[in-house]
Amino acid sequence: MSVIIELEGVRKTYRSGSLAFEALRGIDIRIDEGEYVAVIGPSGSGKSTLMNLLGCLDLPTEGRYVLADEDTSSLDEAALAAIRNRRIGFVFQQFHLLPSMTAWRNVELPLVYAGLPRHERRDRAIAALERVGLGDRVDHRPGELSGGQQQRVAVARALVTEPALLLADEPTGNLDSRSTSDVLGLFDELHASGRTIVLITHEPDVAARAGRNLVIDDGLIAVDRPTAAAGVAQ
């Protein structure tokens, strides 16, 4: 299996005047294609920083990050934007859907920035919505959908570009228990169909659904272990 994510000696230091805070203090991670990894850790452990680096939303102070054979460490903002567009599908805790747009318009947004023609965008957006089970809600606005449905739209948006990595930041943090199992079930399906998923969470039972758990503590990886679910999903 090929390596999708490779972090080598990654450090991230935030500076504010003379104060410096080391959020990550030397991280090495390899994630293979098709893996379902949960990153867990208490708040302040550095897992949000790691998520930002993995999502190419921020650059490491030191170290190397290779995503799908592309070294991202020395890219400028525009190039990072292009990488995010092509390689990464984001799912956020707050869904981050644009309220004035219908579901399919929200889903097609990454394709707009990829420069695809309009009819192709619509076809692919609707296909992605069908995939997450919202084929009958394409013309609904986010306000007309339940929380779980909104998060499904967000997942469809993350999938529509066929990214190498699905990066989910506390995707169930704003959902009730029914919607949570709904969305996690969707992740299980995507994992089963071969998607690479990295999920950031602080909930142990959410992390237990993944095949591998990375526990971050104080800017370092404290534990890297397969879970009980690993055998089942593979």
């Binding site: 999502g55 939303l57 903002e77 525009a78 934007a81 292009a82 995010r84 567009n85 092509r86 984001f90 981050h96 644009l98 947004l109 990454p110 920035y113 990829a114 948006r157």
Partner: peptide, 10 residues
């Protein structure tokens, strides 16, 4: 922020 995350360059 969202548009940027989804791939909109500055």
């Amino acid at each position: 922020g969202l548009r940027k995350a989804l791939g909109a360059a500055p």
